[in-house]
């Protein structure tokens, strides 16, 4: 009897462990933001003259962010306020609506930037400036500074 109970408990723990391994919203949202950083970096490299301007690559990079930001804002379920070196501020859970509005704003900005790519460097430069303002605005309110 005892061994069955212990066995059941172990199986239970294993099960929870597996479930966590499958779904780790903190890691997922961090990976998405890293990917978004790389997408922005793709475009800024062109604007800085480090890479030749490529309208399609620029549009794709903006499209990448546009496609994942809707998912990103759903990756903050209750219970993921701390852990995993998260820099998410508690305000996210207090002002969910506002946080999601920032996501919607970024979706709009990146759609515009995606379309702007066809217009050449200067048009992308202006559109990316708007994307950047949204990044900063949301980070100011909802992302804590790097730890000391």
């Amino acid at each position: 009897m005892r061994s069955i109970v212990i066995g059941a408990v172990f199986t239970g723990i294993l099960g929870i462990g597996l479930a966590l391994a499958q779904s780790d919203p903190i890691k997922e949202r961090q990976e998405l933001m890293k990917s978004n950083g790389r997408s922005v970096g793709t475009v800024t490299a062109m604007l800085k003259g480090e890479k030749p301007f490529d309208a399609k690559a620029a549009a794709d990079a903006m499209g990448e962010i546009n496609g994942n930001i809707g998912t990103f804002v759903t990756l903050f379920p209750e219970g993921t306020e701390t852990g995993g070196n998260t820099r998410a501020k508690p305000e996210i859970w207090k002002n969910k609506k506002d946080f999601e509005d920032w996501g919607a704003q970024l979706k709009e900005d990146t759609a515009k930037a995606q379309a702007a790519a066809a217009g050449g460097m200067d048009s992308v430069r202006a559109a990316l400036a708007e994307v950047g303002k949204t990044c900063t605005g949301c980070h100011d309110d909802y992302r804590a500074p790097e730890k000391k």
Partner: peptide, 23 residues
Amino acid sequence: WSEKDIVYALESGLTPSGDSMGG
């Protein structure tokens, strides 16, 4: 960072890694 990276970051608020300057 290259000099161009610094110039662009001051112009746009975006760092070479694509992050935004904060605070």
